[in-house]
Simulated scan of single mutants.
Amino acid sequence: MSPLRNLSDKELSIINTKKGLGALLRQSHLDINKTVRNVKYEKRLEKLQEEMLILQQWVVANNKKVVILFEGRDAAGKGGAIRRIIQHLPPRAIRVVALPKPNETEVGQWYFQRYINRLPNNGEIVFFDRSWYNRAVVEPVNGFCTKKQYEVFMSQVNEFEKMIQDSGIYLLKLYFSITKAEQERRFNDIINTPTKKWKYSDVDRRALALWDDYTKYKELMFKKTQEYAPWKVIKANRKTNARIRAFEYILKMIPYETKDLETVRPRTIRSILNE
């Protein structure tokens, strides 16, 4: 039976587009339904990217400041989501912060100091690909901080975030959640892909063995760090769905003008596919 026979007229029209034909040609094995899903996802993504550009222009025009934290386990898809969100934004009005291990000078500073130095100026959006919440989960799990340093951080972080918001900065916190099996699958993909191998770190190598420890500290973080800036947990086993959810949440939470309510209305991938 032809793979086209079970498709609706609307789905056939999607296939018979530049995007649809291009998606088909990129496949090593013909999968019409997957092509339809991919094209609908890309169209939804484009609408959200257009709306994000409107938000960014509002931030610049009104001298607003926005901070968006992306947290989650290793290989949860944080970086990929950020790349889609900023893909069409003017680079001079945004920054992506992914800090390396602190140097000798930074080790001797107040923990939050190097993050304060990277907060947004007027008219700027800053995306943190991991943030000060390293000290809430990654550092204590891997022995990169002392128990006292962890406790001091947890006692200060809520007030720190309140000060950020009181200064006029919009602060959003997103956590990308994946299962243990999905993390293992993604690590294997990284290891076996020559262009991705560089991503696999010593911390990644220990992540699966320390899964339960990560879970314990993650749950403590959720319990104790929502006083002024709540967490948005995004199920991220399916990367496409996670990217759409992150987009929708950001567009919903920032009160920019000329918001397209239909575009920013949260929808599942399934509902998008049924459109």
Rank of each mutant, 00 (worst) to 15 (best):
S2L: 07
N6W: 03
S8A: 11
S13H: 02
T17S: 13
L24A: 00
H29L: 09
N38D: 07
N38V: 10
V39I: 08
V60P: 13
K65F: 04
V67Y: 08
V67K: 10
G72R: 11
A75G: 07
I82L: 06
R84E: 05
P90R: 12
I94P: 03
V96E: 06
V96H: 00
V97I: 15
P102Y: 08
T105L: 12
W110T: 10
I116A: 14
N117W: 13
R118F: 07
P120H: 10
V126L: 12
R130Y: 02
S131F: 00
W132K: 10
Y133G: 13
R135H: 06
V137C: 07
V138F: 00
F144L: 15
K148C: 01
F153R: 13
S155C: 02
Q156K: 15
V157K: 07
F160A: 15
F160W: 04
S167D: 02
G168A: 00
F176A: 06
Q183K: 04
F187S: 01
K196S: 05
W198H: 05
D202L: 01
L208T: 05
L210H: 08
W211L: 05
W211H: 06
D212S: 11
K216C: 04
T240R: 13
T240K: 09
T240Y: 00
N241I: 08
A242R: 02
F247T: 08
Y249D: 11
M253Y: 09
I254G: 08
D260V: 09
P266L: 06
I269E: 14
I272S: 10
